[in-house]
């Protein structure tokens, strides 16, 4: 581009630019390799047999590809005394994350709509307090939350974990939706009021249809947070209701005898797969949604 714009540029300048450009690509390539290395080792190791891991090099490709380790990780690895693999815990995580993401996203949308478009006295204070909730460290709420869950009779259950994640998510989801809705002109709400629409009608018919980008952002954010959570998972669950992150920890830490690196690696990849998938499928909306704001029209 610049070369076209300045045809009279000196040759040495053009040469310097090309060298710089290649240097940049080279550096970026190095960094990319550096970050991909662990994934490479994980994938290759999970496809090797234990025998080969013991004898071969860490970074070598598998001589013989075998999916035994994956099978074991999915349905046979031992977490403590049970040997059912990750499968039941994976479904625990799904049953936990899906409703928690949906509920917290919905509440965040409603909260954001109120704080941004239905200004009431004290709206800013309430919003600030919600924001403050985003920055309370998890450890601080562990004991009070355990007590609350006990009193509500949902301690150690999946609904209990859903409850915890919804509460913790509201701060962030409200923030996302509020910042999105604040850029929508308040005249839109006024026009709808004159047209006779009420609070929920305006939300359903006008604001929600506008919200796809920010819904995608919120869903990715919340899903990643909730799926990857370990602390709440390990604190507020019991045998049978543990999420996949806790089960992964148990598989890796509780094996006796020979350490099955291939099974550990396969299990780690399985546990991380859903968040990876969400990013790959919806990642471009994430960037777009975060930078989107003003609504034209």
């Amino acid at each position: 581009m610049t070369d076209l714009a300045y045809p009279s540029a000196k040759k040495s300048d053009a040469f310097g630019k090309i060298v710089l450009r290649w240097l940049l690509y080279f550096l970026l390539g190095i960094f990319a390799l550096y970050y991909l290395m662990p994934l490479f080792v994980m994938v290759t190791t999970s496809l090797k047999s234990l025998e080969e891991i013991r004898t071969g090099s860490l970074v070598a490709l598998p001589r013989e590809v075998t999916f035994d380790a994956w099978r074991t990780a999915w349905s046979g690895a031992c977490t403590g005394i049970q040997c059912e693999g990750l499968r039941p815990y994976f479904w625990n995580s799904v049953m936990l994350a899906v409703p928690a993401v949906m509920i917290s996203t919905f509440i965040g949308a409603l909260n954001g709509y109120v704080v941004a478009q239905w200004r009431f006295p004290g709206a800013n204070i309430i919003f600030s307090l919600m924001l403050f909730g985003c920055f309370i460290p998890f450890q601080v709420v562990l004991l009070p939350m355990a007590r609350l869950l006990g009193m509500m009779g949902i301690a150690g259950t999946i609904p209990g974990l859903i409850f915890v994640h919804v509460i913790y998510g509201i701060g962030f989801t409200t923030l996302f939706f509020r910042n999105y809705y604040v850029s929508i002109p308040s005249e839109l709400t006024k026009a709808a009021k004159v047209d006779g629409a009420g609070f929920f009608r305006i939300f359903w018919s006008i604001f929600l249809p506008l919200s796809l980008p920010i819904i995608v952002v919120t869903v990715i954010w919340q899903f990643t947070q909730i799926w990857n959570d370990f602390l709440f998972g390990v604190s507020f669950s019991q045998a049978g209701t543990q999420p996949v992150t806790v089960a992964l920890n148990n598989i890796v830490n509780s094996t006796t005898g020979v350490k099955e690196y291939n099974v550990d690696m396969a299990a780690a990849i399985i546990a991380a797969a859903p968040t990876l998938l969400v990013y790959i499928v919806a990642g471009k909306y994430f960037i777009r949604g975060l930078t989107a704001g003003s609504v034209k029209g």
């Binding site: 002109p185 709808a192 009021k193 047209d195 006779g196 629409a197 018919s205 029209g297």
Partner: peptide, 17 residues
């Protein structure tokens, strides 16, 4: 507003996008 029997045109038009 809805019961005042009025109609309003806004500066930004406020059309539902």
């Amino acid at each position: 507003p809805k019961d005042r029997d009025i109609a309003m045109v806004f500066q930004s038009y406020a059309l539902y996008p």
